[in-house]
Protein backbone atom coordinates (compact mmCIF):
# COMPACT_ATOMS: atom_id res chain seq x y z
CA UNK A 1 0.00 0.00 0.00
CA UNK A 2 2.98 2.29 0.54
CA UNK A 3 3.62 2.36 -3.19
CA UNK A 4 2.48 5.79 -4.46
CA UNK A 5 1.55 4.32 -7.82
CA UNK A 6 -0.83 1.95 -6.10
CA UNK A 7 -2.40 4.73 -4.11
CA UNK A 8 -2.92 6.70 -7.31
CA UNK A 9 -4.35 3.56 -8.86
CA UNK A 10 -6.80 3.31 -6.03
CA UNK A 11 -7.67 6.97 -5.64
CA UNK A 12 -7.70 8.35 -9.19
CA UNK A 13 -10.84 6.46 -10.22
CA UNK A 14 -12.61 7.50 -7.03
CA UNK A 15 -11.71 11.15 -7.55
CA UNK A 16 -12.82 10.96 -11.17
CA UNK A 17 -16.08 9.40 -10.07
CA UNK A 18 -16.49 12.05 -7.38
CA UNK A 19 -16.17 14.80 -9.96
CA UNK A 20 -18.80 13.20 -12.17
CA UNK A 21 -21.15 12.85 -9.22
CA UNK A 22 -20.60 16.40 -8.00
CA UNK A 23 -21.62 18.05 -11.29
CA UNK A 24 -25.41 17.94 -10.78
CA UNK A 25 -24.90 19.06 -7.19
CA UNK A 26 -22.83 22.00 -8.35
CA UNK A 27 -25.38 23.17 -10.92
CA UNK A 28 -28.21 22.87 -8.42
CA UNK A 29 -26.24 24.45 -5.61
CA UNK A 30 -25.37 27.48 -7.76
CA UNK A 31 -29.02 27.64 -8.82
CA UNK A 32 -30.02 27.84 -5.18
CA UNK A 33 -27.33 30.42 -4.56
CA UNK A 34 -28.73 32.75 -7.22
CA UNK A 35 -32.26 32.40 -5.94
CA UNK A 36 -31.49 32.74 -2.25
CA UNK A 37 -29.04 35.59 -2.74
CA UNK A 38 -31.99 37.52 -4.17
CA UNK A 39 -34.14 36.59 -1.19
CA UNK A 40 -36.18 33.75 -2.66
CA UNK A 41 -35.71 30.50 -0.73
CA UNK A 42 -35.91 27.51 -3.02
CA UNK A 43 -36.34 23.99 -1.73
CA UNK A 44 -37.76 23.08 -5.12
CA UNK A 45 -34.33 22.51 -6.66
CA UNK A 46 -34.96 18.78 -6.57
CA UNK A 47 -38.22 19.08 -8.47
CA UNK A 48 -36.86 21.43 -11.11
CA UNK A 49 -33.88 19.17 -11.66
CA UNK A 50 -36.12 16.12 -11.95
CA UNK A 51 -38.50 17.79 -14.39
CA UNK A 52 -35.55 19.05 -16.41
CA UNK A 53 -34.02 15.57 -16.53
CA UNK A 54 -37.28 14.19 -17.86
CA UNK A 55 -37.67 16.97 -20.42
CA UNK A 56 -34.04 16.57 -21.48
CA UNK A 57 -34.43 12.83 -21.94
CA UNK A 58 -37.64 13.30 -23.92
CA UNK A 59 -36.27 16.22 -25.94
CA UNK A 60 -33.04 14.47 -26.86
CA UNK A 61 -34.97 11.39 -27.92
CA UNK A 62 -37.48 13.37 -29.96
CA UNK A 63 -35.01 15.58 -31.83
CA UNK A 64 -32.04 13.20 -31.77
CA UNK A 65 -29.77 15.81 -30.30
CA UNK A 66 -28.37 16.38 -26.83
CA UNK A 67 -28.70 20.12 -27.39
CA UNK A 68 -32.43 19.79 -27.94
CA UNK A 69 -32.51 17.89 -24.67
CA UNK A 70 -30.63 20.64 -22.89
CA UNK A 71 -32.96 23.31 -24.27
CA UNK A 72 -36.04 21.30 -23.32
CA UNK A 73 -34.67 20.77 -19.82
CA UNK A 74 -34.00 24.47 -19.38
CA UNK A 75 -37.41 25.51 -20.72
CA UNK A 76 -39.29 23.20 -18.35
CA UNK A 77 -37.11 24.09 -15.40
CA UNK A 78 -37.51 27.82 -16.01
CA UNK A 79 -41.28 27.36 -16.31
CA UNK A 80 -41.37 25.75 -12.86
CA UNK A 81 -39.06 28.45 -11.55
CA UNK A 82 -41.53 31.05 -12.77
CA UNK A 83 -44.38 29.30 -10.96
CA UNK A 84 -42.27 29.49 -7.83
CA UNK A 85 -41.46 33.12 -8.60
CA UNK A 86 -45.12 33.98 -9.10
CA UNK A 87 -46.04 32.38 -5.78
CA UNK A 88 -43.11 33.87 -3.90
CA UNK A 89 -42.85 37.32 -5.47
CA UNK A 90 -46.30 38.29 -6.71
CA UNK A 91 -48.48 36.32 -4.37
CA UNK A 92 -46.20 36.68 -1.37
CA UNK A 93 -46.96 33.04 -0.61
CA UNK A 94 -44.91 30.82 1.60
CA UNK A 95 -41.78 29.94 -0.34
CA UNK A 96 -41.19 26.66 1.44
CA UNK A 97 -44.71 25.50 0.65
CA UNK A 98 -44.29 26.49 -2.98
CA UNK A 99 -41.01 24.57 -3.19
CA UNK A 100 -42.61 21.47 -1.69
CA UNK A 101 -45.44 21.72 -4.22
CA UNK A 102 -42.99 21.92 -7.11
CA UNK A 103 -41.08 18.88 -5.88
CA UNK A 104 -44.26 16.82 -5.79
CA UNK A 105 -45.48 18.17 -9.10
CA UNK A 106 -42.26 17.06 -10.78
CA UNK A 107 -42.18 13.69 -9.04
CA UNK A 108 -45.74 12.92 -10.14
CA UNK A 109 -45.87 14.43 -13.60
CA UNK A 110 -42.59 13.00 -14.88
CA UNK A 111 -43.60 9.42 -14.20
CA UNK A 112 -47.21 9.95 -15.24
CA UNK A 113 -46.30 11.50 -18.59
CA UNK A 114 -43.37 9.15 -19.10
CA UNK A 115 -45.67 6.19 -18.68
CA UNK A 116 -48.31 7.58 -21.02
CA UNK A 117 -45.85 8.67 -23.71
CA UNK A 118 -43.35 5.83 -23.67
CA UNK A 119 -44.92 3.02 -21.61
CA UNK A 120 -41.60 2.06 -20.09
CA UNK A 121 -42.32 2.47 -16.41
CA UNK A 122 -41.68 6.21 -16.46
CA UNK A 123 -38.44 5.90 -18.40
CA UNK A 124 -37.71 7.87 -21.53
CA UNK A 125 -36.33 5.92 -24.51
CA UNK A 126 -32.72 4.85 -24.29
CA UNK A 127 -30.57 7.44 -26.05
CA UNK A 128 -28.02 6.59 -28.71
CA UNK A 129 -24.55 8.03 -28.35
CA UNK A 130 -25.29 10.71 -30.94
CA UNK A 131 -28.11 11.92 -28.70
CA UNK A 132 -25.92 12.36 -25.63
CA UNK A 133 -23.17 14.60 -24.36
CA UNK A 134 -20.23 12.23 -24.50
CA UNK A 135 -16.91 12.49 -22.74
CA UNK A 136 -14.37 14.69 -24.50
CA UNK A 137 -11.05 12.92 -24.69
CA UNK A 138 -8.30 15.47 -24.28
CA UNK A 139 -5.63 13.11 -25.58
CA UNK A 140 -2.80 11.70 -23.55
CA UNK A 141 -0.79 14.96 -23.40
CA UNK A 142 2.30 12.86 -24.02
CA UNK A 143 1.97 11.28 -20.57
CA UNK A 144 2.57 7.60 -20.10
CA UNK A 145 -0.92 6.23 -19.40
CA UNK A 146 0.41 3.79 -16.82
CA UNK A 147 2.39 6.37 -14.85
CA UNK A 148 0.88 8.03 -11.81
CA UNK A 149 0.60 11.38 -13.57
CA UNK A 150 -0.88 9.65 -16.59
CA UNK A 151 -3.47 7.94 -14.42
CA UNK A 152 -4.43 11.22 -12.78
CA UNK A 153 -4.72 12.87 -16.17
CA UNK A 154 -6.80 10.13 -17.75
CA UNK A 155 -9.01 9.23 -14.76
CA UNK A 156 -9.52 12.61 -13.14
CA UNK A 157 -9.15 15.38 -15.70
CA UNK A 158 -9.65 14.05 -19.22
CA UNK A 159 -12.77 12.40 -20.53
CA UNK A 160 -15.40 14.68 -19.02
CA UNK A 161 -18.32 15.85 -21.10
CA UNK A 162 -19.17 19.39 -22.13
CA UNK A 163 -21.71 19.90 -19.33
CA UNK A 164 -19.12 19.05 -16.69
CA UNK A 165 -16.93 21.83 -17.98
CA UNK A 166 -19.98 24.13 -18.01
CA UNK A 167 -20.60 23.38 -14.33
CA UNK A 168 -17.08 24.30 -13.33
CA UNK A 169 -17.21 27.36 -15.54
CA UNK A 170 -20.44 28.46 -13.90
CA UNK A 171 -18.60 28.98 -10.62
CA UNK A 172 -16.34 31.88 -11.67
CA UNK A 173 -19.12 33.33 -13.84
CA UNK A 174 -21.47 33.37 -10.87
CA UNK A 175 -18.83 34.98 -8.72
CA UNK A 176 -17.99 37.68 -11.27
CA UNK A 177 -21.61 38.52 -12.03
CA UNK A 178 -22.81 38.56 -8.44
CA UNK A 179 -19.80 40.21 -6.86
CA UNK A 180 -18.27 42.34 -9.60
CA UNK A 181 -21.17 43.83 -11.53
CA UNK A 182 -23.74 46.43 -10.59
CA UNK A 183 -26.53 44.00 -11.42
CA UNK A 184 -25.01 41.45 -9.07
CA UNK A 185 -24.55 43.99 -6.33
CA UNK A 186 -28.19 44.98 -6.56
CA UNK A 187 -29.32 41.39 -6.70
CA UNK A 188 -27.50 40.57 -3.51
CA UNK A 189 -28.76 43.76 -1.91
CA UNK A 190 -32.32 42.67 -2.67
CA UNK A 191 -31.65 39.54 -0.66
CA UNK A 192 -30.26 41.45 2.29
CA UNK A 193 -32.23 44.67 2.36
CA UNK A 194 -34.94 44.93 -0.26
CA UNK A 195 -36.26 48.20 1.18
CA UNK A 196 -33.00 49.98 0.44
CA UNK A 197 -33.01 48.74 -3.14
CA UNK A 198 -36.62 49.76 -3.53
CA UNK A 199 -35.90 53.19 -2.14
CA UNK A 200 -33.12 53.54 -4.69
CA UNK A 201 -35.76 53.11 -7.37
CA UNK A 202 -34.88 49.61 -8.52
CA UNK A 203 -37.64 47.05 -8.87
CA UNK A 204 -37.34 44.36 -6.23
CA UNK A 205 -39.67 42.05 -8.10
CA UNK A 206 -37.76 42.51 -11.36
CA UNK A 207 -34.45 41.58 -9.76
CA UNK A 208 -35.91 38.60 -7.97
CA UNK A 209 -37.55 37.33 -11.15
CA UNK A 210 -34.22 37.50 -12.96
CA UNK A 211 -32.55 35.55 -10.16
CA UNK A 212 -35.30 32.93 -10.21
CA UNK A 213 -34.91 32.54 -13.98
CA UNK A 214 -31.15 32.01 -13.66
CA UNK A 215 -31.94 29.45 -10.97
CA UNK A 216 -34.25 27.68 -13.44
CA UNK A 217 -31.60 27.69 -16.17
CA UNK A 218 -28.98 26.15 -13.87
CA UNK A 219 -31.41 23.48 -12.66
CA UNK A 220 -32.10 22.77 -16.33
CA UNK A 221 -28.40 22.12 -16.85
CA UNK A 222 -28.35 19.85 -13.80
CA UNK A 223 -31.26 17.78 -15.08
CA UNK A 224 -29.87 17.58 -18.60
CA UNK A 225 -26.55 16.38 -17.18
CA UNK A 226 -28.32 13.54 -15.35
CA UNK A 227 -30.39 12.35 -18.28
CA UNK A 228 -28.34 12.98 -21.40
CA UNK A 229 -24.72 13.10 -20.19
CA UNK A 230 -24.29 10.87 -17.17
CA UNK A 231 -26.98 8.40 -18.26
CA UNK A 232 -28.68 7.57 -21.51
CA UNK A 233 -32.20 8.60 -20.67
CA UNK A 234 -34.47 9.50 -17.78
CA UNK A 235 -35.49 7.02 -15.10
CA UNK A 236 -38.07 7.67 -12.42
CA UNK A 237 -36.87 9.56 -9.36
CA UNK A 238 -33.57 10.06 -11.09
CA UNK A 239 -32.50 12.92 -8.83
CA UNK A 240 -32.90 10.73 -5.70
CA UNK A 241 -32.46 13.61 -3.25
CA UNK A 242 -29.62 15.36 -5.08
CA UNK A 243 -31.57 18.61 -4.91
CA UNK A 244 -31.56 18.39 -1.13
CA UNK A 245 -27.86 17.53 -0.97
CA UNK A 246 -27.32 20.62 -3.13
CA UNK A 247 -29.34 22.58 -0.60
CA UNK A 248 -27.11 21.21 2.13
CA UNK A 249 -24.07 22.18 0.09
CA UNK A 250 -25.51 25.68 -0.24
CA UNK A 251 -25.78 26.02 3.53
CA UNK A 252 -22.32 24.52 3.80
CA UNK A 253 -20.93 27.04 1.36
CA UNK A 254 -22.37 29.97 3.31
CA UNK A 255 -23.96 31.13 0.05
CA UNK A 256 -20.59 31.76 -1.68
CA UNK A 257 -19.76 30.33 -5.13
CA UNK A 258 -16.21 29.19 -4.45
CA UNK A 259 -17.23 27.49 -1.23
CA UNK A 260 -20.09 25.93 -3.16
CA UNK A 261 -17.56 24.34 -5.48
CA UNK A 262 -15.70 22.93 -2.49
CA UNK A 263 -18.83 21.68 -0.77
CA UNK A 264 -20.19 19.99 -3.89
CA UNK A 265 -16.86 18.32 -4.63
CA UNK A 266 -16.70 17.09 -1.05
CA UNK A 267 -20.23 15.67 -1.18
CA UNK A 268 -19.55 14.16 -4.61
CA UNK A 269 -16.41 12.48 -3.28
CA UNK A 270 -18.30 11.11 -0.29
CA UNK A 271 -20.81 9.60 -2.67
CA UNK A 272 -18.03 8.13 -4.80
CA UNK A 273 -16.36 6.62 -1.75
CA UNK A 274 -19.68 5.17 -0.57
CA UNK A 275 -20.31 3.61 -3.98
CA UNK A 276 -16.79 2.22 -4.14
CA UNK A 277 -16.88 0.81 -0.61
CA UNK A 278 -20.28 -0.86 -0.83
CA UNK A 279 -19.63 -4.29 0.64
CA UNK A 280 -15.85 -3.99 0.21
CA UNK A 281 -13.76 -4.48 3.36
CA UNK A 282 -11.14 -1.84 4.14
CA UNK A 283 -7.69 -3.01 5.19
CA UNK A 284 -7.52 -2.83 8.97
CA UNK A 285 -11.07 -1.54 9.38
CA UNK A 286 -13.23 -4.32 8.04
CA UNK A 287 -16.44 -3.46 6.25
CA UNK A 288 -17.47 0.10 6.96
CA UNK A 289 -21.22 0.62 6.61
CA UNK A 290 -21.63 2.81 3.54
CA UNK A 291 -24.47 4.52 5.35
CA UNK A 292 -21.80 6.41 7.28
CA UNK A 293 -20.67 8.10 4.08
CA UNK A 294 -24.21 8.57 2.85
CA UNK A 295 -25.20 10.27 6.08
CA UNK A 296 -22.16 12.53 6.28
CA UNK A 297 -23.38 15.36 4.02
CA UNK A 298 -26.56 15.69 6.07
CA UNK A 299 -24.86 15.33 9.41
CA UNK A 300 -22.12 17.82 8.52
CA UNK A 301 -24.71 20.33 7.37
CA UNK A 302 -26.65 20.07 10.61
CA UNK A 303 -23.47 20.52 12.63
CA UNK A 304 -22.55 23.54 10.57
CA UNK A 305 -26.04 25.00 10.90
CA UNK A 306 -25.77 24.56 14.62
CA UNK A 307 -22.84 26.92 14.50
CA UNK A 308 -20.39 24.59 16.15
CA UNK A 309 -17.87 24.80 13.32
CA UNK A 310 -18.29 28.31 12.04
CA UNK A 311 -21.58 29.95 11.40
CA UNK A 312 -23.68 29.73 8.26
CA UNK A 313 -26.06 32.64 7.99
CA UNK A 314 -28.41 32.98 5.03
CA UNK A 315 -29.08 36.28 3.25
CA UNK A 316 -31.10 38.36 5.69
CA UNK A 317 -34.27 38.77 3.66
CA UNK A 318 -34.39 35.29 2.17
CA UNK A 319 -37.72 33.61 2.55
CA UNK A 320 -39.51 36.83 3.44
CA UNK A 321 -41.98 38.11 0.87
CA UNK A 322 -41.36 41.75 0.06
CA UNK A 323 -44.17 44.14 0.79
CA UNK A 324 -43.88 47.78 -0.11
CA UNK A 325 -44.49 49.78 3.03
CA UNK A 326 -47.47 52.08 2.80
Amino acid sequence: MSDPAMIVDLLAPVVGSGIRLSVPLLFACLAGLWSERSGVVDIGLEGKMLAAAFAAGAGAAAFHSPWAGLVAGIVVSVALALVHGFAAINQRGNQIVSGVAINFLAAGLTVLLGQVWYGQGGRTPQLANSERFLGLDLGSLGLDPSSALGRIWSDVISGHNALTWCAFLAVPITWVVLWRTRFGLRLRAVGDNPHAVDTAGVSVAGLRYRAVIVCGILCGFAGAYLAVAQSAGFVRDMTAGKGFIALAALVFSKWKPLNALGACLLFGMLDAVAIRLQGTPLPGLGTVPVQVFQALPYALTVVLLAGFIGRSIPPKASGIPYTKDR
Binding site: A12, G16, A272, I275
Partner: peptide
Protein backbone atom coordinates in the same frame (compact mmCIF):
# COMPACT_ATOMS: atom_id res chain seq x y z
CA UNK B 1 -20.02 4.43 -11.66
CA UNK B 2 -19.35 0.94 -10.32
CA UNK B 3 -18.64 -0.39 -13.80
CA UNK B 4 -16.36 2.58 -14.50
CA UNK B 5 -14.42 1.95 -11.34
CA UNK B 6 -13.93 -1.68 -12.30
CA UNK B 7 -12.88 -0.68 -15.78
CA UNK B 8 -10.47 1.85 -14.30
Amino acid sequence: ELAKSQID
